[in-house]
Structure formats: structure tokens, C-alpha cells
């Protein structure tokens, strides 16, 4: 028997400037076997896809108007454990500098209030392996993030897209001793 999907609306948390990540993980932990999670958010929670893919969930996202998103996470035993999901695929429009690997992680932080985009990017970087890269979408040039990346020995490239509304940042995690500097 398939259970009714559990619905979680994190829009109020996001509107208040909060971080819904722990609430989402808690909800996922309480799902019944084969139960899906219907998540309502103010932006497409792209970073969540990789996290929940590792926990064995497929996702299907759609915009529901007003900039809000509905994402259905359904258990998928085929995906679990393979370490493969679409986020591991090279993004078609990411332009990695010569010699950099394709991003192993993507973050869309465009709809977060400052300084949350910076906090999330730094947290995600800690989870990368040395030399791996991550791409981050932002609303503006992250001028306070750069000094922190520099202190940690990470390298980065970035620039505005043609429409001037999205800043695409590519960070390569420090290799070896650089980070301790």
C-alpha cells in the first residue's frame, strides 16, 4: 500500500529568514516506508536533491506560481547507492577553467537573504573533497565571500550571466596544505 505523501511547507521558515534544512531532514527521517515527501518552497531547492538522492529519493520539481516550487521526493531504490544523479552530470552551461574538474555540486542561492548564500556555500565546500569544484548561483557578486574563500586556500572564478541578474560562481576546493594556511 502506498502512503499519502507527507506535506512540508517551508515557505514560512524561508520568509522569516530561517534555515529549513534541519526541518526537512527531520521530516524525511519520519517518513514511512515508500512514503513520499511533498515539499513546498520559495525557490527550487536544488542543493537538497543531492542530499536526498543519497538517502534514496528521486525528485520531481515544478514551479507553482508566485516563484514558489513544489518538489515531490519519492523513494527510489534504483538510485540509492549508485552515487549518480543528474547533479553529478556536467551542467551544460558551466564553463570550468582549464584543468578544473566539472562541478560535483551545484547550489542555487539566488533567493536567500544575505548572508545565507555565503553561509551555505561555505558549509557545502567543507563537504567537498580537495580539488573538487562547486558551482553557485547568486543574485550579486559575493564580495564578502571572496576573502573567506581566499583564507581557506580555495580558488574561484565568477561573473554575471548575460542578463545581469545571476552571478555564476565556480569554486575549487583547496588541495592539501593550502587550506590550513
Amino acid at each position: 500500500m502506498t502512503l499519502v505523501p507527507h506535506e512540508l511547507d517551508v515557505r514560512p521558515i524561508l520568509h522569516d529568514g530561517g534555515e529549513p534544512f534541519s526541518v526537512i531532514l527531520q521530516a524525511v527521517g519520519q517518513l514511512g516506508p515508500e512514503q513520499a515527501l511533498r515539499l513546498l518552497s520559495t525557490f527550487e531547492p536544488v542543493p537538497l536533491y543531492a542530499v536526498l538522492a543519497k538517502k534514496g529519493f528521486d525528485h520531481a520539481a515544478r514551479e507553482i506560481g508566485g516563484g514558489d516550487w513544489e518538489v515531490m521526493f519519492t523513494p527510489s531504490f534504483a538510485v540509492a547507492g549508485t552515487g549518480q544523479n543528474e547533479l553529478a552530470q556536467p551542467a551544460p552551461d558551466s564553463s570550468s577553467p582549464h584543468g578544473w574538474p566539472e562541478p560535483s555540486r551545484h547550489q542555487d542561492n539566488r533567493d536567500l537573504a544575505p548572508p545565507e548564500p555565503m553561509v551555505r556555500a561555505l558549509a557545502a565546500l567543507e563537504e567537498l573533497r580537495p580539488g573538487e569544484t562547486m558551482s553557485v548561483l547568486l543574485r550579486r557578486e559575493p564580495v564578502f565571500l571572496f576573502p573567506e574563500l581566499g583564507k581557506r586556500g580555495h580558488e574561484w572564478r565568477g561573473g554575471f550571466e548575460a542578463d545581469g541578474k545571476t552571478y555564476r560562481l565556480l569554486v575549487r576546493k583547496a588541495i592539501g596544505k593550502e587550506e590550513a594556511a
Binding site: V119, L125, P147, E148
Partner: peptide, 13 residues
């Protein structure tokens, strides 16, 4: 700033 991502940190709020 230097602790972000490395240990739990408070929000600005």
C-alpha cells in the same frame, strides 16, 4: 567569518 561551515555558528539574527 572564519568559522562558517566548520562548526555551528549563530545567524546574524
Amino acid at each position: 567569518g572564519e568559522l562558517l561551515g566548520r562548526r555551528p555558528t549563530p545567524r546574524v539574527q
